[in-house]
Design a binder for these strands. Structure first.
Lengths: 231, 231
DNA sequence: CGAAGCCTTGATGCGCCTCAACGTACGTGG
DNA sequence: CCACGTACGTTGAGGCGCATCAAGGCTTCG
């Protein structure tokens, strides 16, 4: 049986009494997704909505020509696959487990009911959608006005802040991430990302290896992201 | 006094009885905005939400360096400035009248109440937000994967379909739009847009003049937008 | 141990920005 | 109504940023 403490402190459920959380949980199924497996795919009928309990999920959209673009990473404690909140009945993107993940899944049919019964849940989730729209718009502005170097610096800086864990060398991004992944987040190529990381490593901004990036000087990385050309 | 027929047939109000529309309208103020004036600005406290009755509104975001990016155009019949639906209390962008406009304005305090009282209004507006998020994501993918020529073709094609009126020459975009505007929609420069339009005019795809674009071959323009290099 | 996946680094060239100069339509006030 | 100022549009020359093409090294895993 799932315990209420699993979700009681998470932002989406803020303001719902524990008893109600119990009933909510009784309708949820806990599922395990292993690394690189798909939770759902773009175009699939949106039969469930999800809460990520542990791990990281990569949300990916396909371009018409088959190229992939990473829309965002979901961290634990976040809702995802909430197509209902967007008035959709299919998922708008692929969701891939970046590492082994545990998620709760509710049937979509419960969405409407939940939103109506718990106004705080409704306002929290719509706020989430709102901020994702905001983020998307920001990214459009970024793509339109900034150079590749800034965008890559910004992407890594945000990832480090979202998922980073402190090590003695700096902030380590807590999920396996390749040069290719970064390029798909920023609209460039893995080659350019590789060159940038090499240069930054020389200048002591980051330390990186196979699918691993540690930010050693968040400060200077942020400066780059904000457009200061180095030295 | 405002007449119910003004809004009765508009999508956002679909499914609300005429009597309720009357009460709703009684709280609205009709306002006139002359060409190039601001309805609201980015960062302003979101005191009202709006319905555009006539005209076209340009939604613009400012980049940190002062550059402007056009997020979208609002056509008549659409809601805009609905910061509440995004859980925000300030507007996330500027709204500028592209031509003389007439809009209804409601105080933001009415939003919550309206959403709760009319479920169809709620689901319609959240669907709107959802599709704007979708559009934004699509645009990110576009910026990341397509060449300037495709993006410009696509922007013009969409504008022509959204606002176009039939003339004997083709589809005329029904609002004054400069090379600069197009460049701010696509993340390029007015120079490149000018060169593209000149070339397209030579090939008989469009006819354009000062702040005016007529699409003479939507078909071939769409082909360009989809990535077919011409001839 | 081989294969597949990830990373690096060089060489080359093109797409598009930048800079510059000029032409043209609009509207505004004398 | 004409003259001027301003906003918009065009077109050329030059060069930079980054994609593309190419080749090879290093890990990880079956």
């Amino acid at each position: 049986m799932l315990d209420v403490s699993l979700i009681a402190d998470l932002p989406p459920f803020d303001g719902i009494e524990r008893k109600a959380l119990g009933t909510l949980l009784s309708h949820a199924k806990s599922r395990h997704y292993e690394k690189s497996s798909a939770v759902f795919n773009q175009g699939d009928p949106a039969n469930s909505f999800f809460l990520l309990l542990d791990g990281h999920i990569r949300v990916v959209r396909m371009a018409p020509d088959g190229e992939q673009i990473i829309a965002r990473y979901i961290s634990s404690g976040e809702l995802f696959g909430i197509a209902q909140a967007l008035g959709r009945d299919t998922y708008p993107a692929n969701a891939i487990a970046a590492v082994d993940c545990i998620a709760l899944a509710w049937p979509s049919s419960l969405w409407q009911e939940t939103v109506e019964k718990y106004p705080s849940f409704a306002s929290n989730t719509y706020k989430t959608v709102g901020s994702r729209l905001q983020e998307a718009q920001d990214r459009i502005v970024e793509m339109a006005t900034e150079r590749v170097e800034q965008r890559v610096a910004n992407a890594i800086w945000k990832l480090a802040n979202q998922t980073g864990i402190k090590t003695d060398e700096g902030l380590l991004i807590d999920l396996p991430i390749s040069r290719q992944d970064i390029s798909e987040m920023t609209g460039t190529t893995l080659h350019t990302v590789s060159r940038l990381l090499s240069a930054w490593e020389q200048n002591g901004l980051v330390k990186s290896g196979r699918q691993k990036i540690t930010v050693t000087s968040g400060h200077r990385l942020k400066l780059l992201a904000d457009g200061n050309r180095d030295r």
